[in-house]
Nucleic acid binder design. Structure first.
Length: 511
RNA sequence: CGCGGGGUGGAGCAGUCCGGUAGCUCGCAAGGCUCAUAACCUUGAGGUCGGUGGUUCAAAUCCACCCCCCGCAACCA
């Protein structure tokens, strides 16, 4: 049995779900649906990362305990993904006992193996912020928040011998060209690894931070950030049992945004090496959504809220834009103008209108009853089928490389061809001559096949729409019909439903 | 010389890894159709693919150098 384990990052509960979170999660969901439809057993993990300074701070700001704060934001993420129809299999929280247990087991293992040591860390510490600053973060040598010069302090902490694994990691990445994708990020990681890798500080003294998982070998310290957060990918599988872990872990595929490349491409593999675990299979890295009106920020009022987009335009419409507009790996621009343009052109004018015009003819001319196909097909008929076969092949090729935009382009090229086919064959003209009604019926039969194929293609990208088209064609719920050859699916007396408007054109007032 | 990315018709973007008529959406011009969501189809105008040089029969695509813009630069999710 082929398996695939997909993960989103664990979202940090210091912010509410925004466009970036939504994009990563939708990508994960799309991949899951795609591979599921290929007969692969999939497991999709998402969740929330809930420990650390920033959470304590955020909780303090809203006057609640860290746990209450984390509960609230975590629930918000979960309900958002539910409302968005994300088909995740497990939602993990780093504050849950089974996760803490796994983190402690892994830490203990690495400690016992001698790859964690007690050392000293010095840095610029601001007592107002209760955190260290790097020199670059300081403005004129002062803390940007308090305008005060930080104090250089030294602190005892635990360190992970990350540098020890540098060579092994380099060799691994070099011998596994697809380990990090797209390639630009692999190049970046290799470039980074040309410099010596320092050891990683993995603890905070409890005197400064209590909101964390205690180190199993020293109860005066808690683990700090990544050792806690990254291990979730393992602890979620362990929760399902050792066998489940064995089956899925080697098939782990992590999806992340470029901001957390280093932890995932460097910290995490070396941690796995130290823990004696196999490395994950792939790391897929995407870029940022840049708001046309400048940086995304609440004060500018240009924050894209996933639930709001769903409510205004429908989830599939929102998904379509995100998948079609961004080249996976590169940054993309988000603007409402581009959104409206894309949606009107591709979903309303093309897909929606096409479905509607075909079903309208089927209804008007034959009262929805699918007509038989004759033995001989015209050149156009054959061509139409080939166009869809080709689109299916291209789709597969593009999905393997995370080229969502190109996969959709391939589908839409087939839709364009279908519109052309309608004009070329003009069934609406044939219907004026009673002798040619049979031919018009055949043409419509081919067009219904085009829609059937389209609905199969759309399953991973636009799940609701795929389902709706299926329902309009009166195709029962159940497995994909992609394997049924063109022209053999619709049986005599099959009746399709009257047209429905799938995507209304968006007319934006100056709101 | 820190690392990486981007610079393609009026606008926004694909295409660059694997060289071979420069593609898509919007906008503009002309025509067609009437089945459809003022939609759909055809044709046209508009590009020295940031610059210079090189490799090649052939370069947006490979190589070198230069200019402009943007991220990252380690314990900061």
């Amino acid at each position: 049995m082929n398996r695939l384990y997909l993960t989103t990052p664990l979202y940090y509960v210091n912010a509410e779900p925004h466009l970036g979170h939504t994009y990563t999660t939708i990508i994960a969901d799309t991949l899951k649906r795609y591979y599921q439809s290929q007969g692969i057993e999939t497991f999709l993990l998402t969740g929330t990362d809930e420990h650390g300074d920033k959470i304590v701070q955020a909780a303090k700001d809203s006057g609640v305990e860290p746990k209450d704060h984390a509960d609230r934001i975590s629930a918000l993420f979960r309900s958002t993904w539910d409302a968005c129809g994300i088909s995740y299999d497990h939602f993990i929280r780093t504050t849950e006992p089974y996760h803490k247990q796994t983190v402690q087991e892994v830490l203990k293992g690495i400690y016992d193996a001698g790859d964690i040591y007690f050392g000293e860390y010095g840095g610029f510490y601001c007592y107002g912020c209760e955190r260290f600053y790097t020199e670059k973060e300081l403005t004129d040598g002062k803390c940007p928040d308090h305008q005060k010069e930080p104090t250089y302090i030294q602190e005892k902490n635990y360190f992970f011998r990350m540098g020890k694994y540098q060579q092994r990691l380099i060799s691994f990445i070099q011998s596994h060209p697809n380990f990090i994708q797209p390639e630009r990020y692999r190049t970046e990681v290799l470039a980074f690894l040309r410099e010596p890798l320092e050891d990683l500080c993995i603890s905070r003294p409890k005197s400064r931070l209590q909101w964390g998982i205690p180190l199993p070998f020293d109860s005066d310290f808690v683990t700090y950030v990544w050792f806690d957060a990254l291990i979730n990918y393992v602890s979620a599988l362990k929760l399902k049992g050792q066998e489940f872990f064995q089956d899925f872990w080697p098939k782990a595929n992590h999806l992340i945004a470029k901001d957390i490349l280093k932890p995932h491409a460097i910290f995490w593999p070396t941690m796995l090496m130290a823990a004696g675990l196999p490395l994950y299979e792939h790391l897929y890295v995407h870029g940022y959504w840049v708001m046309e009106s400048g940086k995304m920020s609440k004060s500018l009022g240009n924050v894209i809220r996933p639930l709001e987009m769903k409510k205004r335009f429908g989830m599939d419409t929102f998904r379509y834009f995100l998948l079609r507009e961004m080249v996976f790996g590169q940054d993309g621009t988000f603007s409402m103008d581009a959104f409206v343009m894309r949606v009107n052109a591709d979903l309303a004018n093309n897909l929606g209108n096409l479905v509607s015009r075909i079903l309208a003819m089927q209804k008007r001319y034959f009262d929805g009853v699918v007509q038989p196909l004759g033995g001989s097909w015209s050149e156009e008929d054959v061509k139409l089928r080939e166009v869809f076969l080709q689109a299916g092949e291209e789709l597969q090729r593009h999905m393997e490389r995370l080229y969502f935009h190109r996969a959709l382009e391939s589908i839409w090229a087939a839709l364009d061809r279908t519109n052309q086919y309608i004009v070329q064959t003009s069934p609406f003209l044939l219907m004026k001559d009673p002798d040619r009604h049979a031919r018009a019926g055949e043409i419509l039969h081919h067009l219904l096949e085009a829609l059937r194929m389209t609905s199969n293609f759309l399953v991973p990208f636009l799940p609701e729409t795929a389902k709706e088209i299926r329902s309009l064609l009166a195709i029962p719920e159940g497995p994909s019909t992609a394997e049924v050859p063109w022209g053999t699916y619709f049986q005599p007396a099959h009746i399709v439903r009257p047209p429905a408007m799938l995507f209304p054109r968006i007319e934006l007032e100056n709101d």
